[in-house]
Design a binder for these strands. Structure first.
Length: 567
RNA sequence: CGGGGCGUAGCGCAGUCCGGUCAGCGCACCUGCUUUGGGAGCAGGGGGUCGUGAGUUCAAAUCUCACCGCCCCGACCA
């Protein structure tokens, strides 16, 4: 491609509303243009990148025997009512009506559609197993789109679905996908973690996420520094650091205006670990008190899992009504009204703790949860903290941010049951298809690759994803010898099927160098007067800065061999 | 949805508090000449109903109200 006639609008200025490096660079390098919040146009260079990513995905999906299909993005809402997910998605699903006033949705994912397809086709165990996938535009009306293409409202997803006759088949399909995903992300040059995850709205028995460690990620990851334990904070477990305090008489202490653990801890001169944090939540219409060690935080996902209902924090007046005191002075001992109470497992067996007295400006010392709170139930309800130890090996844990690139789910029969996607097993019984669902965010691979591979000058692409392999820079196209040499080289590279971006523009040298560094093709070749004089032309690796020289006669060959030598 | 910020030329911004030579700057763009190894120089030029609508006023980018859009933090998130 000749830059003089290409639509690659690079910018020197950093767009003011982009914050994370990948978003800034994608805008500056002319990959994308915003149309509305979370909605982007892919310009030629960005689209070429997308296609490179899709090629890798297709190759690896095809390798495990998956078959590519293409389902509609626009679907009748009835399918979503069959599984109850029309309601479950709520405002996140884009909805519209056709001219006959029939309600339609723009699909946020495709389990229902695949299930409908499957129930029409699969009649017998002989039709199984199947793996079907597509690369499709998804629509999700995110409450807050952000970070450029990382959380968008319209985006590309590679979504695959496995259909199996039994649990063993599902395990096999799931493992095939896990392996394909490893290969895809590895080939894209990404360093990733595979972690245990929550399956959320998708349902099903187990799921794993493929995560890229990143300061700008939206997820929090717990990693063991010594073994392979890795989990999303939503589901991560740990051994808490041991603390113990000597038993004390139950005693009310005056703590005027000290509401937070921090304040009371300082006022009474006791460590935060000696406090018991009391929170009031509502699970549906039922209030629940949650107890945690003073230095721990509630994990709402775990609480939801434990109570089997969605939860929300109680409002201040609700707390007052139940406990008889304001938040900051509440506790499980003698609340104004009886309330179901659950405690985090780290509190089990503790003594001499301090908590709110259910009376404004007072706390209670000498709490032993087992004795002080009747009918107390323990469960793992807290977020892992970096002080904790690994449940597998006891080693120290690390807590870090990450970006979700892919997610694989064992769905089981959640969808096939409600949608009656049934088949006959060998004994003639009619049973639901066992399903799995497997997603990859296509744009996120690009954002992740940029986040992980850029410098102050711009993006740095590996060969596998680079839109072009070679960035050919002709410094002065007005100079006849420069022009001729560059044109000849361009032809030579094209005839060797090397994807080449040829900067034949009539702009200054510095401008071309800056643009080349910004776009980040693996190899840059410079044709200038200096090279002509000495018959020695410069080949430079974008990533390492390493340079090579070659005379015009062997320049194309040298470029090929340099390309072969780099990743 | 809660909190905060912003909206003036394609991009980045000043001007808004205190209404009246404020329609301005840099980059980009167009023409000409010169230039070409790290975002060139000179000269000339085009482009904006100041997000939208209502209001206050002799007069509104500037004050008031409403709405829309965009970004950030949080909530939420397959």
């Amino acid at each position: 491609m000749r830059l003089s006639s290409a639509y690659i609008p690079t910018q020197k200025e950093i767009p003011s509303d982009a914050v994370i490096p990948s978003h800034r660079l994608m805008l500056r390098a002319g990959l994308i243009r915003p149309l509305a919040a979370g909605i982007y146009t892919y310009l030629p260079l960005g689209w070429k990148l997308m296609q490179k990513v899709m090629t890798v995905i297709r190759e690896e999906m095809d390798r495990i025997g998956a078959q590519e299909i293409h389902m509609p993005a626009l679907n009748p809402i009835e399918l979503w009512d069959e599984t109850g997910r029309n309601a479950a998605f709520g405002d996140e699903m884009f909805r519209l009506r056709d001219r006959k006033k029939r309600e339609m949705s723009l699909a946020p994912t495709h389990e229902e559609i695949i299930c409908d397809l499957a129930r029409k086709f699969v009649k017998s165990y002989r039709d199984l197993p199947q793996i079907w996938y597509q690369i499709q535009t998804k629509f999700r009306d995110e409450p807050r789109p952000r970070s450029g293409v990382v959380r968008a409202r319209q985006f590309f997803m590679k979504d695959a679905y496995s259909l199996d006759a039994d649990a063993k088949g599902l395990d096999r399909s799931y493992d095939l996908h896990a392996e394909a995903y490893r290969r895809i992300f590895t080939r894209c040059g990404l360093k990733f973690y595979v972690v245990g995850a929550s399956s959320g709205l998708m349902g099903g028995s187990s799921s794993q996420e493929f995560m890229l460690e990143s300061l700008h990620g939206e997820d929090t990851l717990v990693l063991c520094t010594q073994c392979d334990y890795a989990a999303n904070l939503e589901v991560a477990e740990s051994r808490s650091s041991e603390v113990s305090f000597s038993s004390e008489e139950l005693e009310k202490v005056h703590t005027p205006g000290r509401r937070t653990i921090e304040e009371v801890s300082e006022f009474l001169g006791r460590p935060k670990t000696q406090f018991m944090k009391s929170l009031v939540y509502y699970a549906g219409s039922k209030p629940v008190m949650v107890l945690l060690r003073g230095d721990h935080e509630l994990n709402e996902a775990k609480l939801m899992g434990f109570l089997k209902d969605t939860v929300r924090p109680a409002h201040p007046d609700e707390i007052k009504g139940i406990c008889g005191a304001e938040a900051g002075f509440i506790g499980p001992v003698r609340p104004a009204r009886p309330i179901e109470t659950v405690a985090d497992a780290a509190l089990k067996g503790q003594e001499g703790l301090i908590t709110g007295a259910n009376e404004n400006d007072f706390h209670l010392k000498g709490i032993a949860p087992d004795r002080s709170v009747p009918d107390l139930i323990y469960a793992d309800l807290r977020n892992v903290v970096p002080d904790d130890d690994c449940i597998q090996c006891g080693g120290p844990l690390r807590v870090t941010h990450a970006m979700e690139l892919g997610h694989i789910f064992k769905l089981g029969t959640k969808y096939s049951e409600s949608m009656k996607a049934l088949f006959l097993d060998p004994s003639g019984r009619s049973i639901p298809i066992i399903m799995g669902s497997y997603g990859i965010g296509v744009e996120r691979i690009i954002a992740a690759a940029i986040e992980q591979n850029h410098d102050e000058k711009g993006m740095v692409w590996d060969k596998i994803l680079a839109p072009y392999q070679v960035h050919l820079i002709a410094l002065n196209m007005d100079e006849e010898t420069v022009r001729r040499t560059a044109e000849n080289l361009y032809d030579a590279l094209l005839s060797r099927e090397i994807e080449t971006l040829f900067d034949d523009r009539n702009v200054s040298a510095g401008f071309k160098f800056k643009d080349a560094d910004l776009m980040g093709m693996p190899v840059q070749v410079v044709i200038g007067a200096k090279g002509i004089d000495e018959n020695r032309f410069e080949i430079r690796c974008r990533k390492t800065g390493e340079t090579f020289q070659a005379p015009e006669e062997s320049l194309a060959e040298k470029i090929v061999s340099v390309l072969e030598g780099i990743s």
